[in-house]
Design a protein around this nucleic acid. Structure first.
Ligand SMILES: [Mn+2]
Ligand SMILES: [Mn+2]
Ligand SMILES: [Zn+2]
Ligand SMILES: [Zn+2]
Lengths: 140, 140
DNA sequence: CGGCTAGTTTAGAGCCATTCTAATCTATTG
DNA sequence: CAATAGATTAGAATGGCTCTAAACTAGCCG
């Protein structure tokens, strides 16, 4: 019986995603999922891995991030041209984006309501609704 | 008395923005604002200018787009990492994004309601709310 | 255990949107 | 028209990301 913590460890998580538990993937999974919800860039994660003495190339970081997205373990958040964020929270939620610091803050999906969404263009179906609330440092 | 059409021509529009009416800026302003609401990339606009026999460099297209944004004539829409859209509709509205074709479709601001927005993080104020509804070609 | 092989990692090159640089050009003013 | 601040430009540079092709390794089999 799998309790409320879906993956006790990185090994299980990788097995569930049919990904070989290599040294690099195990380390990246731990960095991503052992500290609660995170929003990281590829470069940040690579920096953390290097700092943790896990030798891993940036190419592997990108490969792994995309494999995790494919497995539904991560999602990509686009707020800025030219750089992606990878979000370990895959539940229904939205974001505050603090432009000055480049930080994302989760807004639980049930704390926000998008109403009166019109029908999508003919021949298309809604895949996902993203709400980005851009905030700035409050003027004094 | 300025009627419902705020800018009869590109010249007026540039004067209002305190931008010298150069050949390039006049041509770009006409391409952008003479055909109703548009969502264009820099490269698209550059292509249109070249096709219209207006010699203009891509650097100038970017310079001009950013100046128009600064003047409140345009806004930038970010839906994809690695490429920006420039939106001639600066009124309050949101977007459908059709990933396959890369097309944006406006949703008037009063046709959609974002309710129960929580207070922004301490020390910050909301600057803008972006709703992106990602749609895909409907499965048969 | 020792190979075998498909899958993985990697350094480095390549790609592409965008920005920068510094030289040339031009709109504006007097 | 001359002077000059502002604009344009070609081409180089930047930066995030992807690709390539060679080296490695996890998992399997004998
Ligand atoms: Mn991606
Ligand atoms: Mn920009
Ligand atoms: Zn999130
Ligand atoms: Zn729009």
């Amino acid at each position: 019986m799998s309790g409320s913590r879906p993956f006790a460890n990185a090994l299980e998580l990788l097995r569930g995603a049919s990904l070989r538990p290599t040294r690099q993937r195990l380390a990246l999974a731990r960095l991503l999922f052992d500290k609660g919800d995170r929003h990281v860039t590829a470069e940040q994660l690579h920096g953390e891995a290097v700092a943790a003495a896990v030798p891993v190339s940036l190419a592997t970081v990108y490969n792994t991030l995309h494999q995790f997205i494919g497995a539904g373990l991560l999602r990509e958040v686009v707020v800025n041209p030219g750089r992606s964020y990878f979000d370990t929270n895959v539940s229904d939620h939205h974001h505050f984006f603090i432009e000055e610091s480049g930080k994302l803050v989760d807004i639980p999906g049930d704390h926000i309501a998008v109403a009166n969404v019109p029908a999508p263009p003919a021949g298309t179906a809604i895949r996902r609704v993203d709400v980005i609330i851009r905030v700035e440092r409050e003027p004094v």
